[in-house]
Amino acid sequence: MDRLYAQPPSPVVQWCDIGCGYGGLLASLSAAFPNKTMLGLEIRDRVAEFCRRRVMEMRSEYPGCYGNVAFERTNAMKFLPNYFAKGSLEKLFFCYPDPHFKKKKNRQRIISTQLLAEYAYVLQEGGGVAYVVTDVPELFDWMVQRFEQHPLFERRGERDHADDPVSKFVRDLTDEAQRVDKSDRGKQDASFWRVVNP
């Protein structure tokens, strides 16, 4: 992989993986979409540090590549609007989030009505896309229901979702997706347009 970028990536973050885990999704996307600037947000300090080391090693191994991705340790549920300007993001990823099964813990889920307002704030109106994927059917239903009930999001049709080349990355190329593939659990995924403000 000794190619150079056709043009340098934007200095402004365009794609964000919230709860990026060990960074597998952005590592894959970074190579496939070198002109898009990406940021992974992770709350666990050791995991965020692992991601930073991972991308530094990739940059050493493939000079001229992976300069479009970075990772930050933060609590996105609290501080997301501090990182991004209004309407600045093209894509948001929510891959295999913690299901918080106990009912009293549901408020800690990364998808909620309140947080969707913040995600809508940072996504581009009329073109931004939020992607979700999980192997927990109950959590998938929860996330889809909240997105569909929110006035600033609209579920993409099956064709639009399937034809989007990024959808396959989200579904199959995260570290968690590879663990799920080794089990008998199925994956469910969807994506949602950030509609124009009414």
Rank of each mutant, 00 (worst) to 15 (best):
L25V: 06
R107E: 15
D135V: 00
Y119N: 00
F50M: 12
P165L: 04
L173Q: 15
F169Y: 15
S28D: 11
H100N: 08
D141T: 10
Q7L: 15
Q7K: 11
P151D: 11
R52P: 04
D172A: 11
L173D: 04
F93E: 03
V144F: 12
E42W: 02
R46S: 15
Q178R: 12
R73C: 15
C65D: 09
L116R: 02
R194E: 08
G40A: 04
V69Q: 01
S30Q: 02
L39D: 06
V180A: 04
L29N: 02
W15S: 04
Y83K: 12
A6M: 15
A85T: 12
M58N: 13
D175E: 15
Q178T: 09
N197Q: 13
S88I: 00
F153T: 02
R194A: 08
K78N: 14
E61L: 14
E125A: 15
R159T: 12
D184I: 10
S60C: 14
V69F: 00
C16N: 10
C16A: 13
A27P: 00
H150Y: 02
S60D: 15
V132A: 02
W193C: 11
S167I: 02
M77I: 07
V55K: 02
P137Q: 03
I43P: 05
L139P: 05
P81F: 01
F33R: 12
K102E: 01
G40S: 06
L173N: 09
M56Q: 07
G64Y: 14
K36W: 05
K78T: 10
R59M: 12
E57L: 12
F50V: 13
F79A: 15
K182G: 13
P165I: 03
D135C: 01
V144C: 11
L26A: 00
V69C: 04
C95R: 03
P81E: 03
S167W: 03
M1W: 07
W142T: 01
D141E: 12
G19F: 02
F94A: 07
F192V: 10
K36H: 08
R59I: 02
K103E: 09
V136Q: 09
A85R: 14
D160T: 06
A27V: 14
G157Q: 06
V196C: 10
N75G: 10
Q149A: 10
D189T: 05
Y121C: 05
E57M: 13
P81D: 01
Q14I: 00
V195F: 02
R185M: 14
G64H: 04
A85I: 05
V144A: 11
C20Y: 03
W142F: 11
P11F: 07
Q108E: 14
V170A: 00
V133Q: 06
P11L: 02
P9G: 06
C65Y: 03
G23K: 08
D181Y: 12
Y22V: 13
A27W: 04
S112R: 04
A31T: 05
S88C: 05
Y5W: 07
G128Y: 06
